[in-house]
Structure formats: C-alpha cells, structure tokens
C-alpha cells in the first residue's frame, strides 16, 4: 500500500526534493566557500533584498506585466486571425506561408532598435515589439491547427452540403484549438521576452530596466531578486494560459495530445 502511494507521489516529490536540495546547497556553499557577493548571493540574501526593495519592484513590475499581457493578447488576436486567413485558400497559403516560415527562422530580436526609432523610447515601442515577437509562433501554430482538421471530417461536411463558413466554425476551429494553445504557450513567454528586451534597450522603466541598472551597479542580489520576480510573472502568465487550456480540454472531454486529437 505504502509502496503504491510512493510510486504515485514520486514524480512530484522527487523534483521538489531536488529543487530544495539545490537551494540548500546554494545557500550553504556560498557561505562556506566565501563567494564574493558580487558574483553570487545566497538565496536568503536574495529574499531579504526582495522584501526590502518590494515597493520599488512592485511599482516597476507593473509596466512589465501590463505590456506583456496586452502585447500577448494583441498578438493572439492578430496571430489567430492571420493563421485563419492563411488557410482561406490554397493560393493565399502558397503565397504567404514561406514568408511566415522564414520569419520564424530569422533573429527578430535584433529589430528592437527599429521600434525605438519608429515609436520612441516610451511603452508603445516595447508593446509593439512584444506583439511583433510573439505574433509569429501563434500565427504558425494557428495556421497549422486550421489545417490539421481530419480530411474525412471535411469530406463529411462537403457531403452534407455545409458552407465554407459552417465547416470552418464547426470543424476547423475545434480541431485547431489544441494547436492554438501550443502556440499561445510559446507566445506568452515570448511576449515577456519582448518587453524585457525592450526595457533593456530603452532603459526607461520596468523590471528589465532594474536588472540592467542593478547589474551595471554590481548589485547582484537585486539582479537576482528582480529575475526571481520576473520568473514569477512568467510562470503566472504561463499558468493562466495553461489554465485556459485545461478548461478547454475539459469542455472537449476528448483525449488531446500536443499534436491534436488522438
């Protein structure tokens, strides 16, 4: 009985144990080896900085969070719309799909300075940059999803004299949703990355700015504390998307794997 229970808990307990042990080793070794606080600070020091600088960090995390969320939502809308537009006709797909794929391969991060020139140093350029970065993975996965519908289901719709729009809404969209969520999960992290890079480059406000500022001032503990907060935001937003996916899966009530329906 106990053995069975352990087997069920093992996949959860073991990783947590490992993470805990890692933190403990980090804490103890930094003290033991007298590592310079410039290079690495123990978790306890990070925690105390996090508590001390909490009001500042909270104020600076607000623009980062808002830009990320708004950027992600805009990118989702645009990406899903473009993904749908791409599959409207075979010709449209042939004409634009290669461009979308090539855009996936090039280092779009480097475009950041252009956004500053176009939209200034303010939050608008960071927002636009986040939209620009997270738009592509969402569009690609949406287009993939809209094409992933079971071909015989499409044939069934044709035999039932369904209109293109009926087929799209009732068959293509439901088949696409698992794929779209895969894209959204990538997109939400990429949106945060876009905002943070924007904050690195413009150095006006936000957690990215704090990280740059603290690292140039060699305040390593503050760098770590800010990164920890940023990771918290990242996990929070990812969790929100994952929660949405969970609800959708429950509504489907059918086994769904990463690649669509089983």
């Amino acid at each position: 009985m106990a053995a069975i229970r352990w087997r069920a808990w093992r996949p959860i307990v073991l990783p947590l144990l490992f993470a805990g042990a890692l933190l403990l080793a980090w804490q103890e070794l930094t003290g033991w080896l007298a590592v310079s606080p410039m290079l690495l600070v123990p978790p306890s020091a990070i925690w105390s900085v996090l508590v001390q600088a909490w009001p500042v960090l909270l104020a600076q995390s607000w623009p980062t969070l808002v830009n990320s969320v708004v950027g992600f939502l805009l990118a989702s809308g645009l990406g899903i719309a473009l993904g749908g537009a791409l599959v409207v006709s075979r010709r449209v797909e042939q004409a634009f799909w290669p461009h979308v794929l090539i855009f996936q391969l090039i280092p779009k991060v480097a475009v950041a300075p252009l956004f500053i020139i176009w939209l200034g140093m303010g939050p608008t350029s960071r927002l636009a940059f986040a939209v620009f970065l997270s738009f592509f993975p969402i569009a690609v996965s949406a287009a993939t999803g809209f094409r992933a519908a079971d071909p015989t289901a499409l044939r069934l719709c044709r035999s039932l004299t369904a209109t293109t729009w009926q087929t799209f809404l009732r068959v293509r969209v439901p088949y696409a949703i698992p794929h779209i969520f895969a894209g959204l999960k990538v997109g939400v992290t990429v949106a945060i990355i876009g905002v943070v890079i924007g904050e690195f480059v413009t150095a006006q406000e936000g957690l990215g700015y704090i990280i740059m500022f603290a690292s140039s001032a060699a305040q390593t503990a503050l760098v770590f504390a800010t990164i920890a907060l940023l990771c918290g935001i990242g996990l929070l937003l990812y969790g929100a998307v994952a929660l949405g996916e969970w609800f959708v899966r429950r509504w489907y009530g059918a086994p769904i794997s990463a690649g669509g329906f089983e």
Partner: peptide, 29 residues
C-alpha cells in the same frame, strides 16, 4: 442532401457526444 455517405472511418467529431455527432447533419442543415 438526398444522399447520405458513410466513410471507411467513422469520422465522428472527437469533442461531440454520440448523440450530438448523430445530430451534426441536422445542425448543419
């Protein structure tokens, strides 16, 4: 619509219940 087709695969929509799958043509038509 005077012709009904059955395919090699059942082609039931995975997210619909059996009854809703059977009612799918009614919904479309």
């Amino acid at each position: 619509t005077s012709i009904g087709v059955m395919f090699q695969e059942s082609t039931l929509l995975p997210w619909k219940s059996v009854l809703d799958n059977v009612m799918f043509p009614i919904e479309l038509l």
